[in-house]
Design a protein around this nucleic acid. Sequence first.
RNA 1: GGAGAAAUGGCAGAGUGGUCGAAUGCGGCGGUCUUGAAAACCGUUGACCUUCACGGGUCCGGGGGUUCGAAUCCCUCUUUCUCCGCCA
Length: 422
Amino acid sequence: MLTLALLREKTEDVKKGLAVKNFNQPELVDEIIKLDDDRKALQRDRDEAQMQMNKASKEIGAAFKSGDKAKAEELKAETAKLKEDIKALSEKHDAALEAMNKKLILLPNMPHSSVKPGKSEEDNENIHQEGEIPEFSFKALPHWEITERHDIIDFELGNKITGAGFPVYKGKGAKLQRALISFFLDRATEAGYLEIQPPLVINEDSGYGTGQLPDKDGQMYAIPEDKLFLIPTAEVPVTNIYRNVMLKEDELPKKNTAYSACFRREAGSYGKDVRGLNRLHQFDKVEIVQIVHPEKSYEVLEEMREHVAGLLRELKLPFRILRLCGGDTSFTAALTYDFEVFSAAQKRWLEVSSVSNFESFQANRMKLRFKDKEGNTSLLHTLNGSALALPRILASLLENYQTESGVIIPEVLIPYTRFDEI
RNA sequence: GGAGAAAUGGCAGAGUGGUCGAAUGCGGCGGUCUUGAAAACCGUUGACCUUCACGGGUCCGGGGGUUCGAAUCCCUCUUUCUCCGCCA
């Protein structure tokens, strides 16, 4: 959620920024400011009435104490009108506040100045590419054939137990997955992140805090009976650790990492994109989250980007980094880098990580603030990134590292898998 | 799942209808003293909204109610603790 101060001070800049994100209701900004003006006027009136009421109550109390019952009763009669006024003004005030908030949460985050306009993923900017794309002297198999040949991931079995998009990992497939999780968590720990095991189920307040609610609930699996949701990413429970929190400046930065299963309904997905491990309803991911001083967040974004790049380098997977255009940058993000690995048999780039700076957008919703040395409070900045999402890493590992007879395990993973080929 | 008790400032813990945003202690910050530190002593120490400012308003787990007036009474939800039951 954008701050009212920003809307007021930089009204035109905000409108321009939102246009980069293809947000087409600039008039909302003016409406919000107008509603806030109304609200302030109503608050002044209500506070004035409340003050008189408080004064009268004290006088009544004093009258009773001094035994002047008649005077007390007289004063009491006078408060009736005040009471009505306060009630009416309060209701109007609350209505204006609610109307304003309803509109305010419709505004997406402002994009960073480096974000270029654009409609979709086609307009994303390729800013970096490295690693060698493997060549095969034999016919390379897509990962879903490799997994079937070696019986390490069973998609059919998942269909039986749950439905499409819930594969069953078996034997070396399960172990390779576990190895990757441990590898990623260890690297995050070495980089100073505190490992967290969060709940996989969240309440409405948490969904609201990170922006999945109120209007993206269609992407989450819900448990309506308990008003709970399965997490779409560990970002949600981990960032919500800091909901309604006041940190001290010297506690910054807060660095957390978490492995979790992630659940996504992926309503509207279809076609070849969903083949094999490319798009699942349940998948594993290691997430990194940082809560930082507002002046440091872009520096930290680069640090996180470098962390993710380092993982892919160690796995020796060819990858590229995209700076997302306005249209593809999520509602809550100011700047996002996507990481894609090349999957050698499908001959496709697969998204394996998304690293974003949310600036104060989430912090404002969550009331996540810090107190500086002068005692002033201000909003913190939040960032997160996948480091990394497992299924597509697994897909490209299987495809890129395949031999005619099997799959070689990347060297850095062997201490974790304790086998060197499949 | 059943029965009971509780939820107050960073922490501990008073406060059962009236100048209570809240005693006291600890902790934090500033100062006196000291070569320095400790101890002692003095002062200070929550958030939010509003105002150019003075000031005003709100907040004692969340929500609602009674009352001229609620931390205090009532309803409800949540959480914690104790006992019983069940259980990885």
